[in-house]
Design a protein around this nucleic acid. Structure first.
Lengths: 214, 214
DNA sequence: TCGCGTAACCTACTTCCGGTAAGTTACCGA
DNA sequence: TCGGTAACTTACCGGAAGTAGGTTACGCGA
């Protein structure tokens, strides 16, 4: 009556690499569902069909697990955005394609990335550093594009503009999680329009075009 | 040898309002120093010269305490930015003064606000909501300005631009914590320049001015 | 096909911290 | 001076991160 099923259907042994990938998949899901704080290592372990010490064997700590998740996505994000920008020629096109790829990546990882943008926090300096490192990676990409197409811009401005673009992109990505009817293309268009001309088309003429004076 | 001092110098009774203010001051400090996660309620209690249950008496939970801190700053931020913008007339001036006030506010609360921007997360939905509420407050302010000076802009764009400005501001504020040599005025100027004309002054002509086509 | 080394895995614990129940002290007004 | 109440405390609970040490099963050579 009791154990007609030996109760060991899903629990099979796996190689290190295989188990590691599974753990990362599960962790990304659970972190995305519950948020970092509310996620317990026991739950991740259980969903993996494995006991808690295995997670510590593989990732050292709860932070370590999150950092590993971030690290995996980081590589993917760079790959996706770089490939998207590769085909373009004009600055507008580069920015536009890059932004579309960025927003589409966020769609694919919406749950877990929304968490990262919303709550990078909780955790250790290491986690923050991992997220910042992802930002730096994207910043480098953007700064390169800016330097290439706007060689006349002062260095300080390039750096500031890079930060502006990063911050704006992340905020727009979060906004889209609350406004799912806004497509990745629309969001990217808002972004490129704003970057291209800023608010000048809508403002009363006060100084016309040309590099900002003073 | 042991207790020549009766060891009760700071520990005095206080009225509810007085104690509450002190707790918020201490909590803002400690959260700013250690980050949310790494801060223990015991430490805040000790620094207040009071026992832990008092904190729970006053704020209900660790989250509640953080939310109260955020709430207090929220009012101050709105006040400061609104007052700064009051004297201006042109859109550029409004934006510029608002941004300077914002960055100066961040300087004054640098530790704790850097934490909020860096790690809004850790905590509950309530905490996130408190931070988002602060953003909404500032968004309303910005959207109002946009609507007033750019009535021709489509509604969808206004909303998106508001998000862009919020995200960009926060990111620039964080950037300044790593680049202390950048003054609030400089950062504000980068922001206003970018908003006014975007990248167009630096880009090769591809379509001139006018509202973004397509 | 038998054994044996090792990599995958588990049970059972400690510690730390958020949160709470129930009791104690000191101020204030009558 | 004395009682009521607001401010405050000690001493605890439960849950989750992290760990020590032992166990199982798979691969592989003889």
């Amino acid at each position: 009556m009791s154990d007609a099923t030996p109760r060991r259907p899903a629990r099979r042994r796996m190689s290190r690499a295989e188990r590691e990938r599974q753990m990362l998949d599960v962790a990304e899901d659970v972190f995305g569902e519950r948020g970092y704080q509310a996620t317990s290592m026991d739950e991740i372990a259980e969903r993996c069909g494995v006991s808690k010490p295995m997670l510590y064997e593989y990732f050292g700590s709860k932070d370590g697990l999150l950092v590993a998740c971030v690290g995996r996505s980081k590589a993917e994000l760079l790959d996706v955005t770089q490939k998207a920008m590769a085909g373009a020629t004009t600055p507008e096109d580069i920015l536009s394609r890059g932004m579309v790829a960025y927003f589409e990546f966020m769609d694919a990882h919406s749950k877990s990335f929304a968490m990262l943008l919303r709550e990078p926090m909780a955790a250790s300096a290491e986690t923050i550093e991992a997220v910042e490192s992802t930002r730096r990676q994207q910043s480098t990409l953007i700064a390169g594009v800016l330097a290439m197409f706007a060689p006349s811009a002062p260095a300080g401005a390039v750096e500031a503009y890079t930060e502006i673009i990063i911050g704006a992109s992340e905020r727009l990505a979060q906004w889209r999680t609350r406004r799912p009817e806004v497509s990745a293309q629309e969001a990217a268009r808002h972004m490129t329009d704003f970057c291209r001309h800023g608010l000048s088309p809508y403002l009363p003429d006060a100084g016309e075009a040309g590099p900002a004076p003073r």
